[in-house]
Amino acid sequence: MSAVSTATGADRRERPGTHRTGGGFPGAFASEWTKLWSIRTPYVCLVAGLVVTGIFTFYYGSIARINDKPVQPVGNAPVSSVVLTQFALVVLAVTVVTSEYATSSVRTSLLWVPVRHRVQLAKALLSAVVGLVAGVVFGVLGIAAAWVPFRGHADFELSKAVSQILAMAVYCALTGVMAVGVSFALRTAAGAVAVLFFLISALPSMLIGLGGPVLSAVNDAMPQTAGGHLMLGDGSAPYPAAVGLLILVAWAVAAHAAGAWVLRRRDA
């Protein structure tokens, strides 16, 4: 009897220690990582991004050659393709959040990680990491695909190419963080994608189409416009590339704060 009691007491003493070896933010991030790669959506989104990058950049180089455009950095091709490929990463980031709301499995996530903001932060970091890596891969692929059809209408300067690829990666990462924040705020895939499409693509096109100094100034503060200035890095923007980066960070932080506010206020 005494031996049983001793064993039970030892088991109880070991449980707290065992519990402390996992959990926390690393555990939340590991859980989100496993959940992401257990569904097909991220693979479909990343493959779609690769295909669109290859086709777009090859076409971009061909058009530049046919129209006898001035020589430009070869990295301009993948940078231009981001206007399309970014939405593959947006859909991926939105799915990270809204798929759990659609199936009510978010309740399980919040049960196992009761600190709600930790769940959101883990999903945001996951989307940022995937976006960062995808941005580098898209950039390298885009340069390789565009180089041949350019045929003398592009130059390859290693430092410029690397800076543009890294800028692409940062833009993709911050766009993913913004998408996660909007998804937590709206909780539906259709709503989140619609709002993100409007903010990232539709609204800037409307502002440019309407014209005028005031609307142009507003457009300069939009995430896609700021990202374009950051990625091109050609010095023709109304502000330095560092300011474009700060604008992107501000959009990502604002979206994350909105998502965190809704997550705290509303039941899952």
Rank of each mutant, 00 (worst) to 15 (best):
F138E: 13
V262H: 10
G259Q: 03
V113P: 01
V51N: 03
L46H: 12
L210S: 10
T108A: 13
V177S: 04
R107D: 15
F150A: 15
P70M: 09
I39Y: 14
A173K: 06
L92K: 09
G259T: 05
F25E: 02
R264I: 02
I66T: 01
A254M: 04
L263C: 05
P42N: 05
G131A: 07
A217K: 14
T6C: 10
L174V: 00
V74R: 08
G244W: 07
A145M: 14
A145H: 12
S127H: 07
Y239M: 07
Y239N: 08
L110Y: 06
V170A: 13
L132S: 12
L141D: 11
G212A: 06
I208L: 14
R20T: 09
F58A: 03
H256Q: 15
G211R: 04
A7Q: 12
L36T: 12
D11K: 01
V129M: 09
A10Y: 15
S236K: 15
G233A: 10
R65A: 14
K123I: 08
F198A: 13
L111Y: 09
V177N: 05
P114Y: 00
S62G: 11
I55V: 04
R265N: 01
S99C: 12
E100D: 15
L203N: 07
V115R: 08
H256P: 08
I39E: 10
W147T: 05
A258K: 02
P213V: 05
V253M: 06
M222F: 14
I247K: 03
I55M: 04
L203K: 01
V83N: 11
G9S: 13
Q86Y: 14
L232E: 14
S105L: 12
W251E: 06
A146Q: 10
G176L: 08
V74S: 09
S183W: 05
G244E: 03
V51F: 13
Y43R: 02
E157I: 01
Y171H: 13
G176N: 06
V130A: 08
Y43V: 02
F197W: 11
L263G: 03
T85G: 11
A202M: 12
A102Y: 15
V96W: 05
P78W: 11
L92D: 02
L196T: 00
F25Y: 12
V136T: 01
E100K: 02
A189H: 07
G152W: 14
G209K: 05
F56T: 01
L111M: 11
A192L: 05
L210Y: 15
G211M: 10
